[in-house]
Design a protein around this nucleic acid. Structure first.
Lengths: 194, 194
DNA sequence: GTCTATAACGAGATAGAC
DNA sequence: GTCTATCTCGTTATAGAC
């Protein structure tokens, strides 16, 4: 194990740093996350951060990675029971709640709003795990075209972004998830075959 | 008329300033729009901007206003012929193309991503004109609940944000607009009556 | 209307002491 | 591992000359 006393201290600091970064993002937006402000909130000086983070963009990568780890953990929390449709509805609900609960996640994971930020290969691999899961469930429902996947992602993205922008503490949009998903699964069929 | 020679010069400068701001936003993101960079591209010094703009946030308000004026102009370009459904499809197509064509518009008009920015009352009135038009068309189709309006906006927002984030020069998402809208208009009915 | 000059501030990043 | 000190750069905004 990597949990010597010294490694423990390091991990705790790391988590403090990430928590501070998410706090700033929730307060003032993802773009407002600066190394100075993170250090201020952690209670250390800004140069000390460079023992944990190699640059500002690297900090965003750590946040990206952490968010996907948390999201995948949530998906694994409940065993995959029921029909494929039920599983897809559950997965969608978890994802939607995850981003609405903390809007910077939507910005960081699903939009491209931080100039210069690209997830590292390792972090991006986590993102692909979510895509694969979703695609597998859609496939099991007979929805195997790119069009089906795209329409599905648009639906989740749309509910999430409207919910966050216009009713951040309610469920005015997110409550339509299941209804809307049912309709699209039942009736959407793209004109052209890819 | 307000088009004396001096007012003409002023208007031209104003348009140059706005054009430069949109250029920067397209190149580096809306958050990267700074008064220094705008001045640089216009070919004047940054303090000179204060003859046209009273602050950085005021510049965003001018952009917000200009974008809605352009969007409403486009909507008025074609006469409102056909059924309400046809009109709604046309309106939706214009709006979707408008934001996909220039992604910062989506960010500025429909998301809340610039820290501190709130449209002025006058600018927000323009935004309401679009909402009213949309609501009127939905009403004409018998869709009078808030849920219908919300689901409609989520659909447009979802297609737009996915298109911009993942296929900015293509139509992988936006091409599903009409199909998806038809499905939702035909089959969406919220469980609860507001 | 545009300029120079400057104030006041905050950022990212590095060097080097302890 | 954390600090002080510092470099370099960029920003918003204002004062005042022309």
């Amino acid at each position: 194990m990597t949990s010597s006393a010294v490694a423990d201290r390091r991990n705790r600091r790391n988590e403090q740093i990430l928590a501070a970064a998410w706090d700033i993002a929730a307060d003032q937006g993802l773009g407002a996350v600066s190394l100075h402000e993170v250090a201020r909130r952690v209670g250390i000086k800004q140069p000390s951060l460079y023992g944990y983070v190699s640059s500002r963009l690297d900090l965003f990568d750590m946040m990206f990675r952490q968010a996907y780890e948390q999201l995948l953990d949530r998906l694994d929390a409940a065993p995959p029971t029921g029909t494929a449709r039920e599983q897809l509805l559950r997965l969608s609900r978890v994802v939607l709640d995850f981003v609405v609960e903390n809007p910077p996640r939507q910005q960081l994971l699903f939009q491209r709003t931080i100039p210069g930020f690209e997830p590292s290969e390792a972090s991006y691999a986590l993102a692909l795990r979510l895509v694969d899961r979703t695609r597998a469930l859609l496939s099991a429902l007979g929805k195997r075209t790119q069009a089906h996947v795209d329409v599905y992602t648009a639906l989740i993205a749309g509910l999430g972004s409207q919910q966050i922008a216009n009713d951040p503490d309610g469920d005015r949009w997110s409550r339509h998830l299941e209804t809307l998903l049912d309709i699209v699964l039942d009736h959407f069929d793209p004109q052209e075959k890819p």
